[in-house]
């Protein structure tokens, strides 16, 4: 019905209208019906698969994954070798050749060495105590200066105890073992690059 109407609108002589004009009735003049559009195919029948085959398929998939996992675990235990960390075999073989004959120390020598170490410990302790005392002295001097500054002016004191933001970064070098030589040109050495290439 609706389609016919739409077509009649397009046609030059509207046929439907004429019919409607001629018949007097409460129902629609055209009594045939158009079925609704379905736009779909009838459903296909489900294929039935043998449950044994399904089971076998599942099994195969599981085995495949398990195999992969096993392979990964095996590799996890074996670390990637690092050349630098492995002692070269030729060095292991010639280890005996490189050993020094063991030193036989006399009793007096051992005694002297032990005494020297004890004396060294005492020496270092004195040095340490001296250092601590010096740090204490210097800190006390600063504390005293700050106290006197506080008595003089609180504003100046507050400025003085602010952190010094220009101090960092702080670099210092030296002292060195021998004095630097002025205008010294270091001789050109041979530079052999032995680092490995890891391009491919």
């Amino acid at each position: 019905m609706s389609i016919l109407r739409q077509f009649s609108r397009l046609s030059i002589c509207p046929t439907v209208k004429f019919q409607l004009n001629r018949n007097i009735s409460t129902t629609s003049a055209l009594t045939f019906k158009i079925t609704e559009q379905l736009w779909a195919e009838p459903m296909k029948k489900k294929k039935k698969i043998d449950p044994a085959i399904v089971k076998a398929r599942e099994e195969r998939r599981r085995k495949k994954i398990e195999k992969q996992i096993r392979r990964l675990e095996k590799n996890a235990r074996q670390l990637k070798p690092i050349d630098e960390l492995e002692v070269p075999l030729h060095l292991m073989d010639s280890l005996k050749k490189y050993k020094r004959p063991p030193v036989q120390l006399s009793v007096e020598e051992i005694e002297a060495r032990e005494l020297l170490q004890k004396e060294w410990a005492r020496y270092k302790r004195d040095e340490y105590m001296n250092n601590i005392a010096q740090v204490d002295r210097i800190m006390a001097a600063q504390r005293r200066a700050l106290d006197r500054l506080y008595e003089e002016s609180e504003d100046l004191y507050n400025e003085a105890i602010m952190p010094d933001l220009q101090l960092l970064p702080y670099t210092i070098s030296g002292p060195v073992a021998t004095p630097p030589i002025k205008d010294y040109e270091s001789p050109d050495g041979e530079y052999i690059d032995v680092s490995k290439k890891w391009d491919n």
Binding site: R144, A145, L149, E159, A160, P163, Q166, L167
Partner: peptide, 13 residues
């Protein structure tokens, strides 16, 4: 030169 601190380190009057 490089100053080490904002605070004075010593005092004399």
């Amino acid at each position: 030169i490089k100053f080490i601190s904002n605070a004075p380190c010593g005092f004399y009057k």
